[in-house]
């Protein structure tokens, strides 16, 4: 998994994509309106049957479906926004300054050295004990 900064940047990029997608959805699927009572919506679909469809063409969706789509997109936007805010709040080491960090790194380095020494010591002792055990096992003869 990527680090949190990258996650955050990805999330922001996704938000931008969602903006575009939302606008596109509304632009593509909105309903057609009449300007005055005497107008009527031309049924371009039937006229253009078989012909190349213009990608700019509006494809109206049923009112309920359109509303649902809008709602879903809006919810997604809010969710993404919340994700972003959460990611911001969990950015690592917000409270540490560079000096703190350097101090911590030095401290950890020391600790690591000590721990490594201890580990080596323990390994040596283990070897010694193993050797003793082996000696005893070898000396035991099966009756």
């Amino acid at each position: 998994m990527a680090d949190r900064l990258t996650q955050l940047q990805d999330a922001v990029d996704q938000l931008a994509n969602q903006f575009v997608a939302s606008i596109y959805y509304v632009n593509k699927h909105h309903d057609l309106q009449t300007l005055s009572a005497t107008d009527s919506v031309r049924d371009t679909k039937k006229e253009n049957e078989g012909a190349q469809r213009d990608p700019q063409d509006v494809e109206p969706l049923p009112a309920q479906q359109f509303k649902d789509g809008q709602r879903e997109l809006a919810q997604d936007l809010i969710t993404k926004e919340q994700q972003i805010e959460f990611l911001i709040s969990v950015l690592p080491g917000l409270e540490n300054s560079e000096k703190d960090q350097e101090r911590m790194i030095k401290q950890l380095e020391e600790d690591l050295k000590v721990a490594e020494e201890q580990r080596k010591q323990a390994l040596k002792e283990k070897e010694a004990v193993l050797a003793r055990l082996e000696g005893v096992l070898r000396n035991v003869k099966r009756p």
């Binding site: 680090d3 080491g93 560079e98 960090q101 690591l112 201890q118 580990r119």
Partner: peptide, 25 residues
């Protein structure tokens, strides 16, 4: 900043591992 922070996390991890190993031995 994040890079330093990651380094600290990794070192802490390593320290824990080393200590656990010593303890096991």
């Amino acid at each position: 900043h994040q890079a330093r922070e990651s380094l600290i996390l990794m070192m802490q991890d390593q320290l824990e591992k080393s200590r656990a190993e010593t303890k096991g031995i």
